[in-house]
């Protein structure tokens, strides 16, 4: 934000006398008008004038920047700016430098990120992007556009050098906030969605590694939905039976596990809930009900018992859903 004491309107600027400003609504009295500031009205009147004349010049770049800084969602200004850059052959690295500045101020605007993507598609200079994005995620660690853009950089350029440190990066994000679902999603993107990278060819080993990773995170915070969803994603993707984790999950569901008598044994494969955790965890009850449902037969009664306890006691807001699960299970 700059405070201007003198107005610098295009309508007062002799360098713009050759452009005819075009008012937005001519001869009609619109519904739901926005009561613009004089500066915004002036700039967009001249922008409409330029759109009509088709001028593409340095001063048009300055004009579109002024519009964008007042309203970064003005997609027509972005579109015209992009066409002007191409027409003038403007150095694209300068454009990225300017975008670094604008992106920091307007993280939640689609156009900021897409313009960057258009430029990167041309320059193919992806190497600095990941470091820039770490900085941006430092301002807002769940920004949707930033994460989607990072995933685009990785998959579009698909360069091994870009991918090399991605898992370390996710780890650091999850150490900062174990409940950051954007980071959990990114982990799944890196390991399971975006193709198989060198070193990750053994998919079974990868699944085992990620199941253990999930278990360790669940033991720290057993009510963290992100970690449970990730675990389910890994199991589904690798075709691992949920029942193979019953021994791990039972203590979290407040159920007597098969090894409950050996309380002193430390089982690194099945870390126990940390003291202070709120148990039973709803996600663990749900998980065990899924295990019993799959086993079927007499086990269905055990599943129903858990769904009933979820509906009546532990997760009453979802009563309808748990009752539905119970009814639907009988029909399978």
């Amino acid at each position: 934000m700059t405070t201007t004491t003198t107005t610098d309107l295009y309508s007062d600027d002799p360098q713009w006398v050759d452009v005819t400003p075009i008012p937005q609504y001519d001869g009609i009295n619109p519904v739901a008008p926005i009561l613009y500031t004089d500066e915004y009205k002036d700039a967009t009147d001249y922008f409409r004038g330029v759109l009509k004349s088709g001028e593409k010049s340095e001063r048009v770049l300055e004009l579109t920047e002024r519009v964008i800084r007042m309203n970064p969602a003005h997609y027509t200004a972005w579109q015209y700016r992009y066409q002007t850059i191409l027409a003038l052959g403007t150095p694209l690295d300068e454009e990225i430098t300017l975008m670094n500045d604008i992106a920091m101020d307007h993280l939640k605007t689609y156009q900021v990120w897409h313009h960057r993507r258009l430029i990167l598609t041309q320059t193919k200079q992806a190497a600095q992007e990941l470091a820039f994005l770490v900085k941006v995620l430092g301002l807002d660690n769940k920004n949707y556009h930033t994460w989607a853009y990072r995933q685009w950089i990785l998959s579009h350029f698909s360069d091994d050098d870009l991918w090399r440190h991605e898992l370390e990066f996710v780890d650091s994000m999850l150490r900062d906030d174990i409940r950051n679902n954007s980071a959990w999603h990114h982990r799944f993107f890196v390991l399971f969605e975006a193709g198989v990278r060198a070193g990750d060819e053994d998919r079974e080993a990868l699944a085992r590694q990620e199941i253990l990773y999930s278990k360790e995170r669940i033991s720290l915070a057993p009510n963290n939905a992100s970690a449970w969803n990730y675990l389910r994603g890994v199991l589904d993707r690798s075709g691992t039976e949920y029942s193979s984790l019953a021994g791990f999950v039972e203590p979290y569901a407040g159920l007597p596990g098969p090894t409950a008598s050996d309380a002193d044994t430390i089982d690194t494969e099945n870390p126990a809930p940390q003291p202070g955790a709120r148990l039973p965890s709803v996600a663990a009850l749900e998980f065990m009900a899924d295990v019993y449902e799959k086993q079927g037969g007499e086990r269905l009664a055990d599943a129903r018992k858990l769904w009933t306890s979820l509906a009546r006691e532990h997760d009453t807001i979802r009563q309808k859903y748990w009752e539905y699960r119970s009814t639907a299970a009988g029909k399978l």
């Binding site: 519904v31 739901a32 008008p33 926005i34 500031t37 967009t44 309203n71 970064p72 969602a73 003005h74």
Partner: peptide, 17 residues
Amino acid sequence: NLLQGFPSRYTSQDASQ
């Protein structure tokens, strides 16, 4: 909003009229 208009902070929605 419909008849008198939106205050100037809605300028961010100028491309969403």
